[in-house]
């Protein structure tokens, strides 16, 4: 094992980790806001990838330019899902937690089925794009441009989200609703509106991630499943509900995955992730940056 291999592994792991963070942050945001785990999160990612694919196929819009459009589309999807599904699931008289799990889980299956019905089971991909297949090479270390761009977008998105939550009225409303949904009603904040916008924001973030991924990953109705699993681990690792935790969790998962593959056979590379996850759950059940 040369120094070059190790640096390359860590660099790839870091880039992938930032992307994992960007995928997971929407999940963390929604959970932090209203204690609901969105089990259709992977399907949101899948829809974002298809949106990007169709924008490219029918309108020749590069995934780079499609990113804001995909984010906008997923913002709408997120808000609609809250208003049409989750809002009602939360009204359950008993076992609210279970009802929410089954509602979003069912939604995931419906979305997958509809995707296969309308988009077929064929594997799609964006064959040519501005960044696709291009790499930056520094002293023998290769950094693929789509992932590099994705990492930059992830950092920018986290920065923007931090400012948004801490510096704007809506961000403060979000934070207040999260702390006490009953009390905010007294000061004239519409809880439903805040929740819907929170879901929209969560959707928009995964929309960004999906658009970036479409330029280097294959697209098919089940593509979200393996990424969603990593997103749940990322969120649990970083601390449920903590936006910064998702950021840090993503980077940790990416780096751990890359280092595990260096020392263990690659087929066992996710073992490292789950080992760290178990360790965190045992030692610090609320996650590294959780504040429950």
């Amino acid at each position: 094992m040369t120094a070059e291999t190790i640096i390359q592994s860590l660099a790839s792991g870091l880039l992938m980790g930032l992307l994992y963070g960007l995928i997971a942050v929407g999940l963390a945001l929604i959970f932090g806001l209203m204690d609901v785990v969105n089990f259709a999160h992977g399907e949101f990612l899948m829809i974002a990838m298809y949106v990007t694919f169709f924008l490219f196929t029918f309108f020749a819009i590069d995934p780079l330019l499609a990113a804001p459009l995909a984010a906008a589309a997923l913002f709408v999807l997120g808000a609609v899902v809250y208003l049409v599904v989750v809002r009602f699931a939360m009204r359950a008289k008993a076992n609210v937690g279970m009802v929410q799990i089954f509602a979003t889980f069912g939604l995931a299956i419906v979305m997958r089925g509809l995707a296969q019905l309308f988009f077929t089971a064929d594997y799609r991909s964006v064959p040519q794009s501005w960044l696709g297949g291009k790499t930056v090479s520094i002293a023998g270390i290769f950094l693929p441009q789509p992932q590099l761009f994705g990492a930059l977008v992830a950092i920018a998105a986290f920065g923007g989200l931090y400012l948004f939550i801490n510096r704007t009225d809506f961000g403060r409303a979000l934070e207040a609703t999260r702390e006490d949904p009953g009390a905010v009603a007294l000061v004239g904040i519409d809880k439903n509106r805040v929740f819907a916008l929170g879901w929209g924001l969560g959707g928009a973030l995964v929309g960004l991630a999906g658009a970036i991924m479409a330029s280097f990953f294959y697209i098919y109705p089940d593509v979200g499943a393996s990424f969603a699993l990593i997103a749940y681990v990322t969120v649990a690792l970083g601390g449920f509900g903590s936006v910064f935790g998702a950021f840090a969790g993503g980077i940790i998962v990416g780096l751990v995955e890359a280092t595990t593959a260096l020392v263990l056979p690659p087929s066992l590379k996710s073992v490292g992730i789950y080992a760290v996850y178990l360790l965190v759950v045992f030692i610090r059940p609320r996650g590294l940056f959780g504040s429950m």
């Binding site: 390359q8 592994s9 499943a225 393996s226 995955e257 260096l262 056979p265 690659p266 087929s267 590379k269």
Partner: peptide
């Protein structure tokens, strides 16, 4: 001889070993 996990989100570590 690289055995990898089917449907992995990333294969960069595996490809590096092939390349080496």
């Amino acid at each position: 001889d690289i055995k990898y996990r089917a449907n992995s989100p990333s294969l960069s570590a595996e490809v590096q070993q092939l390349k080496a």
